[in-house]
């Protein structure tokens, strides 16, 4: 469904990705792992057109999307849930979610409020009044409301209280049941391996390893050596 071929991308002035290639099959959850600064977020942003792809090609659904403006990539069916949470602070929770909704999306606002019981209680509050965890769930709900073919999730559990991490994990399991195609960037290795079908490891902007979930579980050291601090 998505293919990255030898992507070079920049974070500000410095090159963050060096010839990164991988693909994601339809219905697959791919975990993108690596240390801080390895280029995980830049990869997601490059797919989304938020960071310019200087070299290489991104193909989605058989068509080249690298070089398209972000809103066109979004309309093609790619949705990014950024690490920065990005709630519209002046709009209510429900308005935030409605802003994402596209006609035909299987995730209607009502269904999302069922899927995310924690945010249902806060639906009339302003986005800016929510805690970090509540905002994270709301922004995930907004992303799903778009009815994406491919969901890019950037560190959804980062900095959250344990109860919120569980809520995020439940949503991830639901997405797995729905056979949604997802690229998950996650520091929490256990959570990533719980839901991912496959793992791609980045190190200093290079894709250094790719392995199945079974292989990662069988040989944890192979993954962990790329994640541990030197």
């Amino acid at each position: 469904m998505l293919t990255l071929s030898s992507i070079d991308a920049y974070y500000g002035q410095s090159q963050a990705l060096h010839g990164v290639s991988f693909d994601v099959a339809e219905g697959e959850i791919l975990a993108l792992l690596g240390r801080n600064g390895a280029g995980k977020t830049t990869t997601l942003r490059a797919i989304m057109g938020l960071n310019r792809v200087a070299r290489g090609v991104v193909r989605f659904d058989g068509r080249v999307i690298s070089g398209l403006p972000t809103h066109k990539i979004a309309r093609a069916g790619v949705t990014l849930v950024p690490e920065t949470r990005d709630a519209f602070s002046l709009l209510s929770v429900e308005e935030n979610i409605r802003l994402g909704y596209r006609t035909g999306s299987p995730y209607t606002v009502e269904r999302l409020l069922e899927m995310f019981p924690i945010i249902r209680e806060f639906r009339l509050k302003k986005g800016g009044e929510l805690s970090g965890g509540q905002q994270q769930l709301m922004v995930m709900a907004r992303g799903l409301a778009m009815g994406p073919k491919l969901l890019l999730l950037d560190e959804p559990s980062q900095g959250l209280a344990p109860i919120m991490v569980n809520a995020v994990a439940e949503v991830l399991s639901a997405l797995r049941r729905d056979r949604l195609t997802v690229i998950l960037v996650e520091q929490n290795l256990r959570m990533a391996l719980d839901v991912a079908d496959r793992v791609v490891i980045l190190e200093d902007g290079v894709a250094v390893d790719a392995l199945s979930r079974a292989a990662a579980l069988a040989d944890p050291a192979r993954v962990e050596k790329h994640l541990a601090v030197h």
């Binding site: 938020l50 809103h71 979004a74 950024p82 990005d86 519209f88």
Partner: peptide
């Protein structure tokens, strides 16, 4: 109007939601 108000807060975010700001 909703798109304009939201884009005032963060235009890039609106583009990520598929709106041509």
């Amino acid at each position: 109007g909703l798109v304009l108000e939201a884009a005032k807060e963060n235009p890039r975010r609106m583009a990520s939601l598929g709106y041509s700001v």
